[in-house]
Computed example of a mutant assay.
Amino acid sequence: MQKAKTLEPRNPNKSTGIFNGQSSGILNWNDIAYPHWHKMYKRLLGNYWQADEINMSNDIKQFASLSQSEQDAYLKIIGLLATLDAPQTRTALLLSLYATDPSVQSIMAVIAQQEAVHNESYSYVLSSIVSLDQQNKAFEFGRTDEILLKRNKNIAKYYNDFVENPTTENILKTLTYTTLLEGLFFYSGFAYFYNLARYNKMVGTSTMISYINRDELEHGRFISELFRATLSENPELNNEELIEWVYEQFKESVELEIEWSEYVLADIEGIELEEMHGYIKYRANKMLRLIGLEEIYPEYVENPMKWIRAYADNIDGTKTDFFEQKSRQYVKVNAIDNGFDDL
Score class of each variant (00 low, 15 high):
S23T: 10
I308Q: 03
A312T: 01
E216R: 00
I155E: 08
I155G: 03
R228G: 09
K150L: 10
L184I: 15
W245P: 05
P235L: 05
Y279D: 04
S232D: 13
E140A: 15
E275S: 14
M305P: 03
N213E: 15
M1A: 11
K201A: 03
N152Y: 05
T91A: 10
A64C: 10
R328L: 15
N239Y: 13
E70S: 03
K3G: 07
L231C: 04
L172P: 01
S57D: 08
M276H: 01
I171M: 14
D215E: 06
S327K: 11
S206I: 03
R143W: 13
L180K: 02
Q329F: 05
L66F: 09
E294C: 08
E295C: 14
N170V: 07
F63L: 13
A73Q: 02
V110P: 08
L217N: 05
L81I: 10
L80E: 07
N238K: 14
V331A: 12
E255R: 13
E252C: 06
T89A: 15
E164P: 02
R198M: 12
V254Q: 02
Y74R: 04
S123H: 13
N170I: 09
G25T: 02
D85T: 02
F63P: 01
F227S: 02
K76H: 09
G292Q: 05
K153Q: 14
L175Y: 04
Q22F: 13
I291D: 00
A86T: 08
S206Q: 05
E302C: 06
L27Q: 04
K326Q: 13
R289T: 10
E272W: 00
L184C: 03
I77S: 00
S224W: 00
L293E: 12
L84S: 05
R43S: 03
S131C: 07
V110I: 15
L288T: 04
Y247C: 06
S253I: 06
E324I: 00
Y279A: 07
F186H: 01
Q105C: 09
D267H: 12
K3A: 11
E299M: 09
S224V: 00
L44I: 11
